[in-house]
Structure formats: C-alpha cells, structure tokens
C-alpha cells in the first residue's frame, strides 16, 4: 500500500495516522537488516537519486543502505562533484534530474525550503534529508520509532530537548512530531538558542537543564556547532559544557529508565560527556540502526506497490 503523499518534506504535513503507519512499516522491515542476505526485491527497477548539497555520513549512508536493501538502483551526487560547483541553479539541476526519470530524489540542502522547491519541479517523490534549520523528518521518525520501541508508546511521555533549538532542524521536526503524537516536549538551553515563538509549535520552554530533565522519559541532546560562537550565541565550549552539557552529575535524580538520545555527530565533552554518550541510558546507536528501517519504510511506502 502506497502513501497518498508524493513527497516527505516535513513532519507538519504528516497526519498522526500516517506517522503510525510509517513507524509500523519500519518495525516490520527492521528484521531484513539482520538477515545474512540483507536484500529483498521490492523496489527492483526503481531509481533513487541521493542528492546531498551538504556533508553527511550518517544520513546519507543510511538512505543508501535502505534503498539497496530494497533492491532499488541508487545514484549519489554531492555538491562538490556536481554542476552545482559550476554554478548551476537548483531549478536547472532539478529539471535535468527529472529528465532522467528517477522515482525518488533524496535531498539534503543548506537552504530551508529547497526540498519544497524541488518537489514542485519534479514528478519524482522528494524526501527531505534535512533542509537548513527547517526540517529533518526521517530523523524525527527514527527518533519516534526508537522511543516507541523502548517505551511502548509515545503519548503521555515527557521529552526534554537540550541545546541549540534555534539552529536545529532535528529539534523542529521532533517538537512537531512528538507533540503531534501526544507527548509533552520541554526545551532547555541558553536563551540565545531558543527561537522566538517556539511555544506555538506546542513545546514548553525552560532554560535550566536540570529542571527540564528531572522527570523526563527521554532526553534528547543537540549538537553544538562551534561556528555559532561567531554569531555570539554562546561564549565558549567550556562554558557551554559546564552550564548546559549533559554530564553524569546533571543526571543525578533522573528517571531510572530515561533514554538519552543524540542525532549525531556528537561533540564529546561539549554537549554530552563521553561517559553519558556511552552510558547505560544511551540509545544513540540504536537510533542509527532504526534510521535504516525508517528510510526503508519511506521508500517502500512512496515507491512500492500500486498507488
């Protein structure tokens, strides 16, 4: 059964039913990756283009593996080795890719809204693999899958998201997704990293980490980008680690079965202490495993079967 949607651009445009459907499908497909022969013929003859304008290891590899496990043909383009480097616009690139009749295009782009622009220009399904500070829907879906797997539900859970909310597409998609599924989302971080009006997405804002994580079921830690220091968003990594970094001391008194998540790549010793990243609460690598299953589900639901 195919999705009615042509594209997966953000979590906002997915209904609760649709999200459940994607998570259920991913759970079913997860097993394929544990087989000795990790391949099913479902998407044989389909062509998927992976178009990454921005550097990525995790997301890109995850999408490619997902496509290959479903037997789709994949092509991978990066900005530095493509005509982008020669000054081709996104509109022209899109028209040229479209002319080769791909079935899906996965795009990661520096600019918010770029996947939306692409989706308007091509017949192929477009999957947003991260656009600027806007959205990273497959990450939010794999995070929801991981939490649901561990907790058996999403509704009623308390999710604390810690760090640079302003510059994080992962945070935006997770706020929208978890709120949609009935969880409570609380944000904490320096006020310079909390975007204006974020409460309208349904999240609560607190500035203190310990308060936010006190009775959280899930603690999601966001990556701190060093470049943000130039934008005067925080004074130093040292100060950040002390005041907002997730350390063992700060974890004293948290729920026993709390999950600690991070979308990666992590800055050890900045937003998360190494002992915490590798500690008993951490499900960081399980997130990565589920990432492949979620992306297989997205390809399957967009391209598999009859519409």
């Amino acid at each position: 059964m195919r999705l009615a949607e042509k594209d997966i651009l953000d979590i906002e445009s997915l209904s609760v039913e649709r999200i459940k459907n994607i998570l259920d499908t991913a759970e079913g497909l997860k097993e394929i990756s544990t087989r000795p022969i990790k391949k099913v013929p479902t998407l044989r003859g389909k062509t998927i283009i992976h178009f990454f304008y921005e550097p990525s290891t995790r997301t890109r590899t995850s999408f490619e593996i997902a496509a290959k496990r479903l037997s789709a043909d994949t092509v991978s383009i990066s900005a530095s080795t493509s005509s982008i480097a020669k000054g081709e616009t996104l509109v022209d690139t899109a028209k040229n890719l479209e002319a080769m009749n791909p079935d899906a295009i996965v795009i990661r782009h520096r600019a918010a809204g770029a996947p939306h622009m692409l989706a308007r220009l091509v017949r192929a399904s477009v999957i947003n693999a991260g656009d600027g500070m806007h959205a990273h829907p497959s990450q939010a879906l794999l995070d929801m899958m991981t939490v649901r797997e561990k907790k058996g539900r999403l509704a009623g859970l308390k999710i604390a998201i810690i760090g640079d909310i302003t510059h994080s597409r992962v945070a935006r998609s997770n706020i929208v997704g978890f709120v949609k599924m009935g969880a409570e989302v609380i944000l904490a971080g320096p006020p310079t990293m909390i975007p204006m009006g974020v409460e309208t997405l349904g999240a609560r804002v607190g500035y203190h980490v310990q308060e936010a994580i006190k009775d959280a079921d899930v603690i999601m830690v966001l990556r701190i980008q060093k470049e943000r220091q130039q934008a005067l968003v925080f004074p130093s990594e040292r100060e950040y680690a002390q005041c907002y970094g997730l350390t063992e001391e700060k974890l004293a008194g948290v729920k026993e079965d709390v999950l600690i998540m991070h979308p990666g790549p992590i800055n050890r010793g900045v937003e998360i202490a190494p002992e915490v990243a590798e500690g008993p609460y951490s499900v960081i690598l399980e997130q990565v495993t589920n990432g492949v299953a979620i992306r297989m589900a997205l390809f399957y639901l967009l391209l598999g079967g009859a519409r």
Binding site: D131, G132, H134, R172, P195, M196, G197, T200
Partner: peptide, 12 residues
C-alpha cells in the same frame, strides 16, 4: 523573526 521564521526554519 517570529513565529513564522521559527516554523519555516529560516533565519530571522
């Protein structure tokens, strides 16, 4: 900068 920029993920 405001609710819409936060929602769209555009720098405000």
């Amino acid at each position: 900068e405001g609710i819409t920029s936060t929602r769209l993920g555009l720098p405000g």
